[in-house]
């Protein structure tokens, strides 16, 4: 059983994920992540050398199947009002958010 993801690393991940975890959830999540690493580590037998190619998609995108980029013309999105209606708090067409945290730099 690996313990690749220590409690400290886990805490950092939670911060990067912008999560505030409820009581009792951290230990379960960290245990499952470490169990998953047992599977991920199977990849260690894959060589990282220049010869083994990579694939970001399974299907190669070539001229045969790739769409041509559209013309660079500005278009008004027809859904503007519907989209803005989704916001939890709206004021004069602006989405209201709390203060954006900032730090004084020395």
């Amino acid at each position: 059983m690996t313990d690749k993801i220590s409690a400290d690393v886990f805490k950092r991940l939670v911060d990067l994920a912008s999560l505030e975890l409820p009581e009792g959830e951290s230990e379960y999540l960290r245990k499952e992540l470490n169990n998953q690493m047992v599977s991920v580590e199977v990849l260690e037998s894959i060589p990282i050398d220049a010869e083994t190619g990579t694939a970001a998609h399974g299907i190669p995108y070539t001229e045969m199947n790739s769409p041509v980029p559209r013309e660079d013309i500005t278009r008004q999105d027809p859904h503007r009002e519907d989209i803005l209606k989704q916001a939890p708090e709206l004021e004069d067409g602006y989405i209201v958010v709390p203060d954006i945290s900032h730090e004084e730099l020395d």
Binding site: A17, S18, L19, L21, E25, Y28, L29, S101
Partner: peptide
């Protein structure tokens, strides 16, 4: 208090364990 706290509290409360994992 601020935007970061909004993110953390929202995401922490409204995502289940699978998205968090």
């Amino acid at each position: 208090e601020d935007l970061r706290e909004l993110y953390r509290k929202t995401r922490g409360a409204a995502f289940g364990v699978e998205p968090k994992l």
